[in-house]
Nucleic acid binder design. Structure first.
Length: 700
DNA sequence: ACAAGCAGTTTTTTT
DNA sequence: AACTGCTTGT
């Protein structure tokens, strides 16, 4: 590690460093097993076979971005890059896995060893190796957003704030403020002033809380999502030898969805590629939809400045959608305040005009969607080639009931995650304290599940556990109240067993579940059967992991959708219909797309009204939804909705959709045939909906 | 002093 | 469904 030192001082401005890379000798085409020029269009070919150096690929929706990246990986491997030195950073684990399996299929598995994943998981791997350099134990545990909020809550109660009846923000809000500030290079004060002016008086308290939060994590071996990125960056700047050795192993860095990276991620990309200088980022400024989480559109716009010598490539030929869908998409995006001078074109033909369907209420909307889906399936469209999209996870509850009722199998992406359900969090907490006995949040959770232990006692017990870390999991009977001592002993016995060597991970989970089940029955006496089912699924899931640490980090970084489990167990041969938030549908395509709840206040979200930038992002979100559709797009909205406070109320359709000409977006209404007109009148499904009205029946 | 239970409020989007 | 604040019970 001393070798590096004399060079270090010369180049402390890492950002400006430029490396000249000798280009690899051009490879003649007949040596390659894939005919890239034939498989790709001219623009895609240029991107896939580009030589080293920084490359920015601006790719509109449906222009074969994924395909290009897949061929890029194959090309790099074929032309001699060691697969394990190619790093493919994507937005979700799912995306990485899909791309790598497609690339592997092209080259008989030779791409298997390509490293791929999210920024967070890639950084986790680096940190696990070098945590010691940051005074962290290498078995540090990861806090998800609600764990962080719990830590913040602990700090807050420790601070003994005198609030004189002023409303202090909820722990969740504070957590998101902290995260936003750290992801944005902004001062706490500026951010709070801009986003939460009502809390401006608390800025000092926030600063104090934030400092306490950082200290607590450091002292207890905990990292939150932001730490995974920020601490990696810090590791690199404080230990240049680490930066160099990591970057040496990153011969080619490929980044998907670059428009949704934040400042930290952009800096990480720069560090990763700081030895070889081969970095290709792919993105579409029109599809930037993660501003709320710190994504900075300037990353993609100023990429060429950050990486001098960047070659910019564009993909504009859309292969996904028919022209009428693109016409609508182009119109929508042209109304964004920041105009994007990109116009998608297709050779797929005109196709069907997108429809805007008005439903009287959400039940009608659900019935319309289910009925159309059944009709389309009868016409030969597989369920899995159709998707229902919506703004918020809970927008599909009505529809889910209807789909269950009709026996239509579905998976939902973007709803509640398995690891976010309270009972799974409880179970994971047992494993977490065993993995990291300093994890006070996890202790707090499981201690309060015992009868007779509330916040105060839990707090005392945790202080005792922390001070006795060497004798952790042993109990000295005399110190504890007889009210809960027996329960406590039972729990510690269970934890000691899980902790003992040579217990396979599945057995650890089984033991924890066996212990936890009676607790669950008591705490969730109202709805425990469903929760017990989830636990059983979870036991099965544990089999896929080699050890506890792996299971825990995977649960934090790659959460499993709660509903995905239900459908997995059904012995349905038919791949299910997809329900998804628009965010989770990013990068995917479907033949038929239903966008439901296209209401003002939902899409655009009521939170964005009054903020021009936020509204713009909602518009891009709509653009993303529209461009998922290949063949047909149905947008629908109910004109009456419920609200707990004032019952039913009238709604208005999304402001983005009201003034669009009927040429581009055809209005439709739902007609219910009276039951006696049909042969099978008792059957609900026999009532036909006419989703696509002929011009004559638009009388209502 | 602390735990537990009840009622009313509040929910974006995600690693 | 989860969180907060309030009341009651030990």
């Amino acid at each position: 590690m001393t070798v590096s030192e004399e060079e270090d001082n010369k180049c402390d401005r890492v950002m400006a460093r430029r490396f000249v890379i000798r280009q690899e000798a051009p490879v003649e085409r007949h040596h390659l097993s894939i005919d890239y020029a034939k498989e790709l269009n001219e623009q895609q070919y240029a991107a896939a076979t580009a030589q080293g150096g920084p490359q920015l690929v601006v790719a509109g929706a449906g222009t074969g971005k994924t395909r290009t990246l897949v061929y890029r990986v194959a090309y790099l491997v074929e032309t001699g890059a060691p697969p394990e030195q190619i790093v493919l950073l994507t937005f979700t684990r799912r995306a990485a896995a899909e791309m790598l399996s497609r690339a592997s299929a092209l080259l008989d598995g030779r791409c298997r060893r390509v490293r791929g994943g999210t920024f967070h998981s890639f950084c986790l791997g680096i940190l696990r190796q070098h945590a010691g350099r940051l005074d962290y134990p290498n078995n540090f545990t990861i806090l998800d957003a609600s764990d962080s909020a719990d830590v913040i809550d602990v700090i807050r109660s420790g601070l003994n704030l005198r609030l004189d009846r002023k409303r202090f923000p909820r722990k969740r809000t504070i957590q998101s403020i902290f995260s936003s500030v750290r992801n944005r290079d902004m001062s706490m004060e500026d951010f709070v002033e801009a986003r939460y002016p009502q809390f401006l008086e608390f800025v000092e308290v926030f600063e104090q809380l934030g400092a306490g939060y950082e200290r607590y994590k450091q002292d207890h071996g905990l990292m939150d999502y932001d730490d995974l990125l920020i601490k990696t960056l810090r590791l690199f700047s404080e230990h240049d030898d680490v930066r160099r050795s990591v970057a040496t192993e990153c011969r080619h860095v490929l980044v998907d969805e670059y428009q949704d990276t934040n400042r930290t991620q952009a800096l990480l990309v720069e560090r990763f590629s700081s030895v070889h200088g081969n970095v290709m980022v792919v993105g579409d400024d029109a599809q930037s939809i993660y501003r709320f989480r710190g994504a900075d559109i300037r990353n993609i716009l100023s990429f060429p400045e950050m990486f001098p010598g960047t070659q910019v490539l564009k993909l504009e030929h859309n292969y996904r959608s028919t022209q009428r869908i693109l016409d609508l998409a182009n119109l929508l995006i042209s109304r964004a305040r920041n105009k994007f001078d990109k116009r998608l074109f297709t050779e797929r033909g005109l196709g069907e005009t997108p429809v805007l369907v008005h439903a009287t209420d959400s039940r009608f909307e659900s019935r319309f969607v289910s009925q159309m889906i059944l009709t389309l399936r009868e016409e030969g469209v597989p369920l899995s080639e159709m998707a229902v999209l919506f703004r918020n996870g809970f927008n599909s509850y009505d529809l889910e009931v209807e789909l269950n009722h009709r026996g239509i199998p579905f998976v939902k992406y973007g709803g509640l995650k398995l690891s976010e359900a309270a009972h799974i969090k409880d179970l994971l907490a047992y494993l977490k304290v065993v993995e990291n006995p300093m994890d006070g949040v996890a202790w707090n959770r499981i201690l309060q599940l015992l009868e007779g232990i509330g916040p105060k006692t839990a707090h005392q017990l945790i202080s005792w556990i922390e001070s006795a870390s060497d004798r952790a999991f042993e109990i000295d009977e005399s110190r504890f109240s007889p009210r809960y001592i027996e329960e406590l002993k039972r729990m510690f016995a269970m934890l000691r067993y899980i902790r003992s060597a040579d217990v396979p991970i599945t057995e650890q989970v089984e033991v924890a579940v066996a212990y936890y089940e009676p607790v669950l029955r008591r705490v969730y006496y109202e709805d425990y059967p469903k929760r017990i089912q989830d636990l059983e699924h979870f036991v099965g899931l544990a089999e896929g992991f080699s050890d506890r640490a792996q299971l825990l980090s995977s649960m934090a970084l790659d959460p499993i959708e709660l509903t995905a489990l239900d459908t997995e167990t059904e012995v349905d041969d038919e791949p299910p219909l997809v329900l998804s938030t628009i965010h989770s549908a990013k990068g995917l395509e479907y033949r038929n797309v239903f966008l439901i709840r296209a209401l003002d206040g939902v899409l655009p979200s009521s939170y964005s009204i009054g903020d021009a930038d936020a509204l713009d992002e909602e518009l891009r979100l709509l653009y993303v939804a529209v461009t998922r559709a290949a063949d047909q797009l149905f947008i629908s909205y109910p004109s009456v909705q419920y609200r707990r406070s004032d019952g039913q109320y009238f709604t208005s359709p999304s402001r983005f959709l009201v003034d669009i000409s009927e040429e581009l977006l055809e209005p439709g209404s739902i007609v219910e045939e009276s039951p006696d007109q049909t042969s099978d009148d008792r059957d609900e499904t026999a009532r036909a909906f006419r989703g696509l009205p002929s011009p004559s029946d638009s009388s209502s």
